[in-house]
């Protein structure tokens, strides 16, 4: 159990910086098409902002929006979307993640590449963010006496 920081400086800094880090994370994920960045880096930024809140504001407040269960769900859903898109390309008789082969669903090959890449970036970002947050939560399990006593 992590208690909220007693220092108002830490609290205000964490609350100020977390939304900015999240905006930067979405920018990095979406911009991964044609610039340095992409799903993994953006996902790590997103997870960093969530972990900053968890560390500074304590478990009770920090876990309110993104609970442990939700983080696990994110990582599973992201991995599923990634694998599912690859399997869609296989179903269109292309290679795994061959975006142009998704055009059997009715899109132009160019549009299929564009949206395929976008969906894969977002899926990887969500999966990485969820996985990192749930790894952190799992590491904290049983870290203190009250945790081991309860549940």
């Amino acid at each position: 159990m992590i208690h909220p920081s007693k220092s108002p400086i830490v609290l205000v800094a964490a609350r100020t910086m977390a939304p900015a880090i999240q905006v930067m994370a979405f920018y990095v994920i979406i911009h991964g098409h044609y610039s340095p960045g992409g799903g993994f880096q953006g996902g790590v930024l997103l997870a960093a902002s969530l972990l900053l809140l968890r560390l500074a504001l304590g478990d009770r407040v920090g876990r309110q929006q993104v609970t442990t269960g939700k983080a696990t769900l994110w990582s599973a859903a992201g991995a599923l979307a990634f694998a599912g898109l690859g399997a869609l390309a296989l179903a269109g008789s292309g290679n795994f993640l061959d975006y142009a082969a998704i055009s059997w669903l009715g899109a132009e090959p160019a549009a299929a590449r564009y949206y395929g890449m976008l969906i894969v970036e977002v899926a990887v970002g969500v999966a990485v963010a969820g996985a990192l947050v749930s790894i952190y939560d799992d590491l904290l399990l049983g870290s203190t006496r009250e945790d081991r006593g309860g549940s």
Binding site: S7, V10, A13
Partner: peptide, 12 residues
């Protein structure tokens, strides 16, 4: 952001 984060980290 580095100017905010660095002093706060040392403070903590």
């Amino acid at each position: 952001f580095a100017g905010i984060a660095n002093p706060v980290a040392i403070h903590a």
